[in-house]
């Protein structure tokens, strides 16, 4: 609507009271938009609290929710980078499994066992960069490339443990999987998994909103041809975002391995990519790229975790949990679209 836009702009300089009213209303709209799905998250929390007779808002339960949200939050942060460029990464679940397998295998070598953590993360980075290179340099569609690596990397994950479950009860740094960071001794603590997730979100925010690279990521997603013509190295941006997604999937694998002291190349991380994508979409990031925020993704990941936790607390059967989760996701996004009507891109 180029016409209204400029009428608004023209009128804004005129400064009539009607305009002041309209600017105020527009500001409120922007605030609602920024808050995104946060109200939905809060409503879910409150609703589950009453339906579970007060068992939701307890220190212990909130700790569980945060811990359960952690790995998906990390994956979804990487997925946010990718979707902001208008891409998709279907391979994060498989990369997570392969990284966990690589890490656990490493941890069993007595001398080098302490290196398992960087090995896991770098394994993820390696797969991510390969994805990115195929997409950026060979100009293959992201959906196809990562669909391929979803399958191929899953195979490699099984290969790494000779298709068995690898255990290591004495894995170094096990505290990141099960320990908590004490904030106030005896009163408040926060799981290390959640601390890591939060740090990942903060780092993502810093990159997306405070660096040149961040602007370039939004630019590539907003208009790839314009980005190319504006001198942005689109290929480098694409390799970066898929690299980040892979790296964070590797970190997610390390978090899972530390939590379980074990990994299975076949089962670990199955369909994690769907939860990660769901979190990003729930967070209001546009599927075609260019619009979105990492805070939205955090809220999205929390909504998923709260839903799982709340449905268990209220005793809903496992089968119905699937149905309800699916419907809530569709409903939430529908609500979001409805709310944004008229203010979204034209």
């Amino acid at each position: 609507m180029p016409d209204n836009g400029s009428t608004q702009a023209n009128a804004a300089t005129a400064n009539s009271p009607a305009v002041a009213e309209a600017t105020k209303r527009q500001r409120i709209r922007l605030m609602i938009r920024a808050a995104g799905m946060l109200p939905v998250l809060l409503l879910l929390c409150i609703g589950f609290h009453y339906m579970s007779e007060g068992r939701f808002f307890t220190g212990q339960n909130l700790g569980i929710v945060l811990q359960q949200a952690a790995v998906n939050t990390v994956l979804a942060a990487g997925m946010t980078f990718v979707i902001l460029t208008g891409g998709i990464d279907l391979s994060v679940g498989s990369i997570l499994a392969a990284s966990a397998m690589a890490g656990l295998t490493m941890s069993k070598l007595s001398e080098l066992s302490a290196l398992w953590l960087p090995v896991a993360v770098l394994t993820g980075l390696g797969f991510g960069v390969v994805n990115g290179a195929l997409i950026a340099l060979l100009r293959l569609p992201p959906f196809i490339v990562t669909l391929g690596s979803l399958t191929a990397v899953r195979g490699l994950a099984r290969l790494l443990g000779a298709d068995t479950t690898v255990f290591n009860p004495s894995i170094p740094y096990a505290f990141i999987g099960n320990g908590s960071l004490t904030l106030i001794p005896g009163v408040a603590s926060i799981p290390w998994l959640s601390v890591i997730a939060l740090l990942v979100i903060l780092a993502s925010w810093l990159v997306l909103r405070r660096t040149v690279l961040g602007v370039h990521i939004y630019a590539v997603g907003g208009n790839e041809s314009a980005a190319r013509l504006a001198g942005i190295k689109v290929w480098a941006v694409l390799i970066f975002v898929y690299g980040v997604s892979g790296l964070l999937a590797g970190l997610g694998g390390a978090m899972q391995a530390a939590r379980l002291y074990a990994a299975n190349g076949l089962q670990l991380g199955q369909s994690y990519e769907l939860d990660a994508i769901t979190a990003v979409i729930l967070g209001g990031t546009s599927f075609v790229g260019g619009i979105g925020s990492i805070w939205g993704t955090l809220v999205g990941a929390l909504i998923i975790a709260v839903l799982s936790n709340g449905l268990i607390l209220t005793g809903v059967s496992d089968i119905w949990q699937y149905v309800i989760k699916g419907l809530v996701i569709i409903g939430a996004v529908a609500l979001d679209r409805y709310r944004l009507q008229g203010s979204a891109r034209t």
Partner: peptide, 15 residues
């Protein structure tokens, strides 16, 4: 091929 319509004028100008 030119503008990033969803991005602010500020970002567009400084790109």
């Amino acid at each position: 091929l030119g503008l990033f319509l969803d991005m602010s004028c500020l970002d567009n100008i400084n790109l």
